[in-house]
């Protein structure tokens, strides 16, 4: 009886330790990633193209 109890106790404690460790790692990774996910919705960082279509001005200039 004691033998069986000790075996289960060790197993349960190992799995508990493992579960807590995985939980902490997963939570930390989630914290690390969530910052960059929020960043994608940030409206200020939408790019602006510096290329102006100035060919159309030449086209207009050719006209009279």
């Amino acid at each position: 009886m004691k033998k069986r109890f000790s075996r289960y106790f060790i197993l349960i404690s190992i799995f508990t330790c493992l579960a807590v460790f995985i939980f902490v790692v997963q939570k930390s990774y989630d914290n690390l990633i969530s910052a960059s996910v929020d960043q994608q919705d940030y409206s200020l960082i939408k790019t602006v193209s510096p290329n102006l279509n100035i060919q159309v001005l030449d086209e207009i200039e050719k006209r009279y």
Binding site: S6, R7, F9, I10, S13, T16, C17, V20, V24
Partner: peptide, 17 residues
């Protein structure tokens, strides 16, 4: 001894948490 080992693991889990 097995109680000691199990207790250690539980203590480690508690410490981690």
């Amino acid at each position: 001894r097995s109680l000691e080992i199990g207790g250690t693991f539980l203590l480690v889990a508690f410490f981690i948490f």
